[in-house]
């Protein structure tokens, strides 16, 4: 009986595929898309001001408040702006290292660099944020070092400037790895051909390397941008500023206003949807 069943499955390729994909797809569909749907619906509910109970009637009040109340615009723009700064910074930091790793480093050096890039991911996120806090705080190594060269009194913690600094560090590995993968895939013969045809190294880089590696950069930027967009711990720990996540957390936890939290949580979802559409246009997913 068991043999017959297995044989049946063996003969029907599509059944194999189905059995293989149903558990992950079901999980994705029910848990992930389901909760997104609940989030979307909850955003149109409201809170009864007297009893603090959730009123299950559809209303646009939350979105109205998001648009008319200036503070939420400021928070959203701050979050998106810092996510963009972090992304650009990480591209600039990651590219040279990834280029060196992919094209120049010997296998041994490359292995060591890989370990060094990945090493921070072995430690807790909180430990890394707190480490930066110590570095940036008053009396920390940075202030001390700058005072030695005649620039006293630079304490970056706590301030808004500390947020992109810490984020750029924390998400850097997620940018280095895709760029490295993209660069490694470019055959050396292409660069040689470019040189043979008379292109200087600069021209080769601009017209051959960059277009080929650009999708990888965009892929990396999806990580750095979305991770920054959704974070709310680092801003609390190193600054007085709020991210979208902080307002969502406070609306949900402190005020018990789940509908408003859901409405504001839609903002990063929409931003990421736009981002992914643009990224697709730019070919970030072509190499998948």
């Amino acid at each position: 009986m068991r043999g017959r069943l297995l044989a049946f499955i063996y003969r029907h390729r599509s059944l194999q595929l189905l059995l293989l994909l149903v558990p992950p797809a079901g999980w994705f569909g029910v848990v992930y898309l389901g909760s997104l749907a609940v989030l979307f619906v909850a955003a149109f509910w409201s809170l009864d001001p007297l009893t603090s109970a959730i009123r299950h009637e559809l209303t646009l009040r939350n979105f109205q408040q998001l648009v008319t109340d200036g503070v939420y615009r400021v928070v959203a723009l701050r979050t998106i702006g810092i996510a963009a700064i972090v992304t650009v910074t990480d591209v600039l930091l990651a590219f040279p290292l990834a280029y060196y790793m992919a094209r120049y480093a010997r296998p041994r050096t490359r292995a060591i660099l890989f370990v060094l890039v990945l090493l921070p991911l072995w430690s807790s996120y909180l430990v890394r944020v707190y480490a930066w806090r110590v570095i940036l705080a008053q009396g920390g190594p940075l202030e001390w070092g700058l005072a030695q060269v005649g620039i006293p009194g630079v304490a970056i913690y706590p301030s808004d400037l500390a947020i992109p600094i810490v984020f750029s560090y924390i998400w850097l590995p997620y940018m280095i790895l895709p760029i490295y993968a993209g660069l490694e895939r470019i055959p050396g013969s292409l660069l040689e051909a470019s040189g043979d045809l008379g292109a200087r190294p600069g021209t080769t880089f601009r017209r051959v390397v960059l277009p080929l590696v650009f999708p990888a950069v965009v892929a990396g930027s999806i990580f750095t941008f979305s991770l920054t967009l959704g974070d709310y711990i680092t801003p609390v720990l190193v600054s007085n500023s709020q991210f979208i996540g902080n307002v969502v957390f406070d609306s949900q936890g402190v005020a018990g206003n789940v509908p408003f939290a859901a409405a504001f949580a839609m903002v990063p979802v929409l931003v990421m949807a736009l981002y992914l559409i643009v990224a697709r246009r730019l070919g970030a997913f072509d190499a998948l």
Partner: peptide, 26 residues
């Protein structure tokens, strides 16, 4: 509480407190 804890009159209730706190922090 909005009813000033039963003291009569109209007070600002906690949900407004928490909204304004977000605004104060900016």
């Amino acid at each position: 509480l909005a009813d000033c804890a039963g003291g009569g009159g109209t007070c600002v209730d906690y949900s407004v407190w928490s909204q304004k706190w977000t605004e104060i922090k900016g």
